[in-house]
């Protein structure tokens, strides 16, 4: 009696995953086939053989899939390329745009730097997670619907026109010039705010610098030297049409000169003029300074690694 239940249970497990109109037919055939196989093998000890035969037939889910051609993958090979392409597009273009918008909204609302950074981080994680989830669910559904119809919608009508432009190994050009301009601008801003003291305090109307003037007898010099070095190196890269290993080493030195003191200043909360902070009523927490210091360090590290990779090619 127990022998028939084992087969029955197996058959049931298989056919309940099949379309209703085929269930009875396949169930009957499976039962006969299993019985035939057991009988042919060794009718003397049916229970042991039944166990053997059923384990050879394998996982009922897999066995049922053989009858239906139903996909055993969440997203099959037909949809996978489109899925990945869309995912990358969303995460690298749409997500940053949304994040910037949210950060700008916080700034416009005048909620302070901490709130802005917080909104940015939160947006990246929550919106990013939502994008991944929704896209995955949509594609998994499309995979199943397409399979049921028997005509998987091939969204991947790929033509050679879809090929992305080969990324030239950073051959100077606009991108590098922009880098030079950015560093030069930063350099200029630091010097300008010290010389022309652009901020006017509310009360007395006294003109003060935004950054801490004490920096000028210390940490600002390596920062400025590093920035100047980065400008020169970016210009040199335009001339050499890309990274050379010597440029990469010099770039690493300049980055270190620029970023390490800057991170230290940020971490010590010595960046801004205390008078300026008192006037704008600073409500950022110390963690934000350390956070920004870390972000600056990581960004710089990535730039250095990239430059060495490009030089190695």
């Amino acid at each position: 009696m127990s022998t028939s239940t084992l087969t029955e249970r197996y058959v049931h497990e298989v056919v309940r995953r099949l379309p209703a109109d085929q269930r009875d037919d396949i169930a009957d055939e499976l039962r006969t086939t299993i019985a035939d196989t057991i009988e042919a093998r060794d009718p003397a000890r049916p229970e042991a053989v039944e166990r053997e035969v059923l384990s050879e037939m394998g996982d009922p889910i897999r066995h049922a899939a053989r009858y239906t051609d139903r996909p055993l993958a969440l997203i099959g090979p037909d949809l996978y390329p489109t899925y990945i392409r869309l995912l990358v597009l969303l995460l690298t273009t749409v997500l940053p745009v949304i994040t910037v918008v949210f950060v700008l909204l916080e700034i416009v609302d005048d909620n302070g730097l901490g709130a802005a950074v917080g909104a940015g981080v939160e947006t990246v994680f929550t919106v990013g997670a939502q994008m991944v989830t929704v896209l995955t669910v949509l594609f998994a559904v499309a995979e199943r619907v397409g399979h049921r119809k028997g005509t998987l919608i091939r969204t991947t009508d790929w033509t050679p026109d879809d090929l992305p432009e080969t990324r030239e190994p950073d051959k100077g050009g606009i991108g590098v010039l922009m880098t030079a301009v950015w560093y030069a601008l930063l350099f200029g801003l630091i010097v300008w705010q010290q010389i022309s003291e652009p901020y006017r305090t509310d009360g007395v109307g006294e003109r003060i610098a935004v950054l801490d003037p004490d920096l000028w007898s210390g940490w600002i010099w390596p920062v400025l030297t590093g920035l100047a070095g980065l400008v020169v190196l970016a210009l040199a890269r335009v001339v050499t049409h890309g990274w050379t290993s010597r440029l990469a080493v010099l770039h690493a030195v300049a980055q270190a000169l620029f970023v390490l003191p800057l991170a230290w200043i940020l971490h010590q909360r010595q960046l801004f003029n205390p008078d300026f902070l008192a006037d704008v009523t600073d409500n950022t927490t110390p963690e934000v300074y350390t956070g920004v210091a870390l972000i600056v360090l990581v960004a710089s590290l990535i730039a250095v690694v990239k430059s060495f990779r490009a030089a190695g090619k």
């Binding site: 055939e29 086939t33 196989t37 050879e56």
Partner: peptide, 26 residues
């Protein structure tokens, strides 16, 4: 029928697994 066909095939030297043959027939 399925099982007999499987036997005949294997006897004839066309080795095939029941897990492959029965869904194939369908």
């Amino acid at each position: 029928y399925g099982y007999a066909l499987l036997e005949t095939l294997n006897d004839a030297g066309v080795t095939v697994d029941g897990n492959t043959l029965y869904p194939l027939l369908r």
